[in-house]
């Protein structure tokens, strides 16, 4: 069960944002529900971005066959904009981490930092299976 108000891992995302030129961070379940968000972003916006990231990941994954038969295992999606980036990476079983940054961010450093964060999140993420409707977390 995804706990909508329990932002237990939010501090880990806040820590990661100490890196220069990063903006926001969210952690989401593969089915598009928010698991944690940085303090830089409201809950309402984070909910919407979580949903969008799950759709983005699903679409990105579906493009693997465009690479030919041998490719599998989506690892990350990077969106580049005039002025910024969005990084979406796998964060353990059934979870994704999304971080945004300005266009002045050090790409290599950010990649490294994200992997580091994913490792640490992985230790915290023992996500229990979701319960049916009406159950309490």
């Amino acid at each position: 069960m995804t706990e909508p108000t329990n932002n237990r891992l939010g501090w880990m995302l806040d820590n990661a944002l100490q890196m220069p030129e990063t903006l926001h961070a969210i952690l989401l379940s593969a089915d598009g529900l928010l698991m944690a968000h940085s303090q830089t972003i409201t809950r309402d916006d984070a909910d919407r971005h979580a949903a969008a990231m799950s759709g983005l990941q699903a679409l990105a994954r579906s493009t693997a066959e465009f690479c030919g038969g041998a490719i599998s295992g989506w690892q990350q999606t990077v969106n580049e904009f005039a002025g910024g980036y969005v990084f979406l990476v796998a964060a353990g079983p059934g979870a994704y981490l999304a971080v945004s940054a300005t266009d002045r961010v050090d790409m290599e450093a950010v990649s490294f930092r994200l992997q580091e964060l994913v490792q640490r999140l992985g230790k915290e993420l023992t996500s229990p299976p979701r319960q049916g409707i009406g159950s309490r977390a």
């Binding site: 706990e3 909508p4 108000t5 089915d31 598009g32 809950r43 309402d44 409707i133 309490r136 977390a137």
Partner: peptide, 17 residues
């Protein structure tokens, strides 16, 4: 419309997709 997530109160426990 809320901007601070005021509708999702602390007591809310069940998210249903």
């Amino acid at each position: 419309r809320s901007s601070e997530g005021i509708y999702v109160r602390a007591t809310v426990r069940t998210a249903v997709k």
